[in-house]
Measured scan of single mutants.
Amino acid sequence: MQIFVKTLTGKTITSEVEPSDTIENVKAKIQDKEGIPPDQQRLIFAGKQLEDGRTLSDYNIQKESTLHLVLR
């Protein structure tokens, strides 16, 4: 499924993921596309910071959901 990751600069990254993918996994995909190390990434969805060990389905993230990427 496709999800969108919006950066603070307003850029939107499209990523191909599975509901069973972990947040860590998603951060790795963002690193592949943007070159941002996962340890600098914080992903936010519905006002919550997403934890690395959890999966997209844990957070009820569905296709075409938009996550927000904040850098630390």
Rank of each mutant, 00 (worst) to 15 (best):
M1I: 11
M1D: 03
M1Y: 14
Q2W: 13
Q2A: 09
Q2F: 13
Q2C: 09
Q2E: 09
Q2T: 14
Q2Y: 13
Q2K: 14
I3Q: 00
I3R: 00
I3N: 00
I3Y: 00
F4I: 07
F4Q: 05
F4A: 04
V5R: 00
V5D: 01
V5Q: 00
V5Y: 02
V5S: 01
K6E: 07
K6I: 14
K6G: 03
K6R: 11
K6F: 08
T7I: 13
T7R: 08
T7S: 07
L8V: 13
T9Q: 13
T9G: 13
T9N: 13
T9C: 13
G10S: 03
G10F: 04
G10T: 02
K11S: 07
K11M: 10
K11I: 09
T12C: 12
T12A: 04
T12P: 02
T12G: 03
I13L: 09
I13H: 04
I13Q: 03
I13D: 02
I13G: 01
T14K: 10
T14I: 14
T14A: 09
T14F: 08
T14D: 04
T14N: 06
T14L: 12
T14E: 09
S15H: 13
S15C: 15
S15D: 04
S15G: 06
E16C: 13
E16R: 10
E16G: 04
V17A: 06
V17C: 07
V17P: 00
E18H: 14
E18I: 11
E18P: 03
E18V: 13
E18L: 14
P19A: 08
P19Y: 07
P19L: 10
P19K: 07
S20F: 10
S20E: 09
D21P: 01
D21F: 08
D21I: 04
D21E: 09
D21S: 08
T22L: 11
T22H: 04
T22P: 05
T22I: 04
I23L: 04
I23N: 01
I23P: 02
I23Y: 00
I23E: 02
E24V: 07
E24K: 12
N25P: 01
N25C: 09
N25A: 14
V26N: 01
V26A: 01
V26C: 01
V26W: 01
K27F: 07
K27P: 01
K27G: 01
K27I: 08
A28T: 10
A28M: 14
A28N: 11
A28P: 00
K29R: 09
K29D: 06
K29V: 07
K29C: 04
Q31C: 13
Q31V: 06
Q31N: 10
Q31Y: 15
Q31H: 14
D32I: 12
D32R: 12
K33E: 09
K33S: 14
K33Y: 08
K33L: 13
K33D: 06
K33Q: 13
K33T: 12
K33R: 09
E34C: 15
E34F: 15
E34P: 02
E34L: 15
G35Y: 04
G35L: 04
G35H: 07
I36F: 11
I36W: 15
I36Y: 13
P37H: 10
P37K: 07
P37R: 09
P38K: 15
P38H: 12
P38R: 14
D39P: 06
D39W: 14
D39C: 11
D39G: 10
Q40H: 11
Q40C: 10
Q40W: 10
Q40Y: 08
Q40K: 11
Q40N: 09
Q41H: 06
Q41C: 08
Q41G: 05
Q41N: 03
R42P: 02
R42Q: 13
R42I: 15
R42M: 15
L43T: 00
L43N: 01
L43W: 01
L43F: 05
L43Q: 00
I44W: 15
I44N: 05
F45H: 06
F45Q: 02
A46M: 14
A46E: 14
A46I: 06
G47V: 02
G47A: 04
G47T: 04
G47D: 06
G47Q: 04
K48C: 08
K48G: 05
K48E: 12
K48F: 11
K48W: 08
K48R: 11
Q49M: 13
Q49H: 11
Q49L: 15
Q49W: 14
L50I: 03
L50S: 00
L50Y: 01
L50H: 01
E51S: 08
E51V: 07
E51P: 02
D52E: 09
D52R: 04
D52S: 07
D52W: 04
G53I: 07
G53S: 11
G53C: 07
R54L: 11
R54Y: 12
R54A: 08
T55H: 05
T55G: 02
T55Y: 05
L56M: 05
S57E: 12
S57D: 09
S57Y: 10
S57T: 09
D58M: 05
D58N: 05
D58H: 12
D58T: 04
D58S: 14
D58F: 14
Y59K: 00
Y59V: 01
Y59A: 02
N60E: 07
N60L: 07
N60F: 08
N60T: 04
I61C: 00
I61R: 01
I61N: 00
Q62T: 14
Q62V: 13
Q62I: 12
K63H: 15
K63V: 07
E64L: 12
E64R: 07
E64P: 05
E64V: 03
S65M: 11
S65K: 04
T66S: 04
T66C: 05
T66A: 04
T66R: 05
L67W: 00
L67A: 00
L67R: 00
H68M: 13
H68V: 13
H68Q: 11
H68N: 08
H68L: 15
H68T: 13
L69A: 02
L69S: 01
L69I: 05
L69H: 01
L69V: 05
L69E: 01
V70R: 09
V70M: 10
V70T: 08
V70I: 13
V70H: 09
V70C: 08
V70Y: 12
L71I: 12
R72L: 14
R72Q: 11
R72D: 10
R72N: 12
